[in-house]
Computed example of a mutant assay.
Amino acid sequence: MDCLLGTSQALSDGDLGELEKTLEKQTVRILAGFYKGRPSTIKSTYKQKMATSAKAAKKTLKASAGALDQEVKGTFSTAIKTAVKEKADGYDKL
Rank of each mutant, 00 (worst) to 15 (best):
1 M>C: 03
1 M>Q: 05
2 D>Y: 09
2 D>W: 04
3 C>E: 11
6 G>N: 11
8 S>L: 09
9 Q>A: 08
10 A>S: 11
13 D>C: 09
13 D>R: 10
15 D>L: 07
15 D>M: 07
15 D>T: 00
15 D>Y: 05
16 L>P: 00
16 L>D: 00
18 E>S: 14
18 E>H: 12
19 L>A: 11
19 L>E: 02
20 E>L: 14
20 E>P: 04
20 E>G: 04
22 T>G: 01
23 L>C: 10
24 E>Y: 00
25 K>N: 13
25 K>A: 15
26 Q>T: 05
27 T>Q: 08
28 V>G: 02
28 V>E: 15
29 R>L: 08
32 A>S: 11
33 G>L: 09
33 G>A: 08
34 F>P: 01
35 Y>G: 12
36 K>I: 03
37 G>D: 11
37 G>T: 08
38 R>D: 10
39 P>S: 07
39 P>D: 09
40 S>F: 06
41 T>G: 14
42 I>Q: 05
42 I>N: 12
42 I>E: 11
42 I>C: 08
45 T>C: 10
45 T>I: 10
46 Y>Q: 06
46 Y>G: 04
47 K>S: 14
48 Q>A: 15
48 Q>L: 12
48 Q>I: 10
48 Q>F: 06
48 Q>K: 14
49 K>E: 15
49 K>R: 15
49 K>S: 09
50 M>L: 13
51 A>D: 13
51 A>F: 12
51 A>P: 00
52 T>N: 02
52 T>R: 05
52 T>L: 02
53 S>R: 14
53 S>H: 11
54 A>P: 04
54 A>H: 07
54 A>T: 01
54 A>K: 03
55 K>A: 11
55 K>E: 14
55 K>T: 14
56 A>M: 08
56 A>S: 11
62 K>L: 08
63 A>N: 07
64 S>G: 01
64 S>Q: 08
64 S>P: 00
66 G>W: 05
67 A>F: 03
70 Q>V: 09
70 Q>M: 05
70 Q>G: 02
70 Q>H: 04
72 V>F: 06
72 V>N: 10
73 K>S: 05
73 K>R: 02
74 G>K: 07
76 F>N: 09
77 S>G: 00
78 T>W: 04
79 A>G: 04
79 A>E: 15
79 A>C: 04
80 I>S: 06
81 K>R: 13
81 K>H: 10
82 T>A: 15
85 K>G: 08
87 K>F: 01
87 K>E: 03
87 K>H: 05
88 A>T: 03
88 A>I: 02
89 D>C: 05
92 D>L: 03
93 K>C: 07
94 L>A: 09
94 L>D: 06
94 L>R: 08
